[in-house]
Design a binder for these strands. Structure first.
Lengths: 232, 232
DNA sequence: TTACAGTGTAAATGGTGTTTACTTTTTTGT
DNA sequence: ACAAAAAAGTAAACACCATTTACACTGTAA
């Protein structure tokens, strides 16, 4: 790598780092190219040698955050014995919330209000989100193989609404062959429900109502896992 | 009301109306005082005769939206026979989602990402949110009186984590005397869970995964009500 | 060494919220 | 009816913002 290429990379990293600092300090929507440039002793226009425009910077941050989150989930999964899907799911569920609390701005960037006048490109976000989702599918699949996954009747395939079953079948055929649709439903439902709780907590809509958000979250994870037949 | 006061009110309404138009078109974060002024044929500074600043306008919109939502919930409640809490809860749950779909920008304004550099005053939002929450509490309370409310063991008072029970006791003593804490927990949990699902739907994170979001929501409402012992 | 591509600057355009001093209009009190 | 006060609106400025253009410099490669 030539001297110039190396310098370019450090400058690029400095821009992203300062953007993340601003994001952590005042929220993703208040990232300012001019402020970044000023902090670096550059002219605002110089930033445009590194990012085509504001949206390009945001898109890069989103992509990196998605993968950081997926890495955190996979790391949590690996802290538990592979043959113990209950412990693994529990660990990943808690890690999901913990990552959100540790990186609130990142989490909001990924899953919160879309930034004004910015549309995240699907071809980037969908695969990244899927990598995330797959962690849950994998654990449930392992639990299913050992016969531990025994959901309540409402979540068994024959009781799922036909429209949902049809869509899950299509999705399974495309992305998750050999995975039963009721498992896909459990993964979706479990992710969505816990994800919703975390969003509420981050936006401070749950704190006044519930005292201990961690205990609330833990209780709901437990109830949900019981619905899946996954007892501790 | 003098001629001047009347005119002031229509101007004020025109500002709010245009703000809501912008909000509906491009999201709450892109409301612009200058754009509103231009649309009205006014100088930007003129707006400041009606709102102390940008935040004051947002705060007003938030307050109005909170009450519009609460009105919608109460209206849905009253479409059902008072003695049928199952039908009432069902109707209100669906109305909650429907209002969000009909007024996505309002819903995001209330429950989404905080607007950059704006902090909603708690003395305004908390009572408004509580009016909303009380609809659920009231229905569950009616169900409890007729003995229909029979939650699964995990949600019964003696199984709630002590920290949560303590907080609910304090909240109950303050705002809901005579209401058992397990009921308060059910209301909180039910609200939070469905609310989370709606947030995900509005932010388009659920559509690629789940096919029919309405069916998904309905199924989860049904499962949740079954956990409460409220069968149809 | 001469091109050339990469990196940066200066200046301008049009957008934002907000404040200040000033003018016009309407209401109110005598 | 008329003067004083209050309200509504304007013009101009300030300090931000993203973005574009034309231009200069500099490291690299032919």
């Amino acid at each position: 790598m030539s001297r110039r290429e190396q310098q370019r990379e450090t400058t690029l990293n400095e821009i992203k780092s300062l953007a993340r600092q601003q994001m952590a300090a005042q929220g993703a929507a208040s990232i300012s190219l001019r402020a970044i440039a000023k902090e670096m002793g550059l002219t605002p226009a110089a930033i445009y040698r590194y990012f085509r425009n504001y949206d390009a910077l945001i898109t890069t941050l989103i992509a990196e955050s998605y993968h950081a989150q997926a890495d955190a989930l996979q790391a949590a999964d690996r802290t538990q014995p592979p043959h113990d899907p209950v412990a693994r799911l529990w660990a990943v569920m808690l890690a999901y919330r913990q990552w959100a609390l540790d990186h609130p701005a990142d989490f909001q960037l990924l899953y919160g209000n879309p930034i004004p006048n910015y549309d995240a490109p699907d071809e980037l976000t969908l695969p990244a989100a899927q990598r995330n989702f797959s962690v849950f599918v994998q654990i449930l699949s392992d639990a299913d193989r050992t016969g531990q996954l025994q959901p309540i009747p409402a979540y068994q395939p024959e009781h799922l609404p036909p429209i949902i079953a049809a869509h899950l079948t299509a999705m399974g055929a495309r992305d998750y062959p050999q995975i039963p649709i009721s498992l896909l439903y459990l993964a979706t439902m479990g992710w969505a429900k816990m994800h919703g709780l975390i969003l509420l907590e981050l936006f401070h809509h749950t704190q006044p109502v519930i005292g201990d958000t961690a205990a609330f979250y833990a209780l709901e994870v437990e109830v949900m896992m019981r619905q899946m037949g996954l007892h501790r």
